[in-house]
Amino acid sequence: MFGITKIQFFNSNLKVLSTIIQQNGMSQYPNYYIKPIYKKDSQEELIKSGEIKKLSHLPTRAALADQTSSFSNDPLANLLINYCMREGNKILARNLVEQCFENIKRLQLEKYHKTTNEEDKHQIDLDPKSILHKAIENCKPILQLTPIKRGGVRYQVPVPITDKKAQFISMKWLIAAGQEKESTVRFNLQLARELIDAANNTGRVIKKKQDLHRQCEANRAYAHYRWS
């Protein structure tokens, strides 16, 4: 078969490809198919840097069902929808997240109409997607604790975390916080409140992150167990 190995790609001087190519054992596509670049501005960037010519030799996967080139399509929002999804019920998950965004807008607009000061009005963010981005960014932990066994004892050792993992943990915490609520309150409303709080660097999820950081700081002494 047409097998191209990981090494060939990683070592060829293609910065673009090294971020695109992945070895995915579970995908039904052959591993040399690259993920599509479906946003117009991402494509513009590639054209400017001249790397688009190198993509002309690589077959592309088909764009997924939740990807469009519209500006309203946000990859992080899509991820959030997927994480909220249970048993493949994408329609329900999407409705939840959309209602969550609607709630964010309503809460923010309420605040906006209440404040009389022009400056404060400008501070209030009315775009739910930007609030989502800020919230996720603010909740990302820098370290995580992993159990490492030394001398029969399992220590919780602070260990650096990759960006992707941090993002995943942040989103998982946000969703979990959305689910911890009274039964009268809706998930989308609770999640909206959590997102707004997190974007302002307050709230339960930020506290959780700070707790984790404190724990990591407390377990500093074990950090060398990572290598011993």
Binding site: S70, F71, S72, K105, L109, Y112, L126, D127, P128, K129
Partner: peptide, 13 residues
């Protein structure tokens, strides 16, 4: 009313 965050092509879409 600041309900919709505008972007080019919003209307047609």
């Amino acid at each position: 009313r600041k309900w919709v965050n505008d972007y080019p092509g919003l209307d047609e879409e």
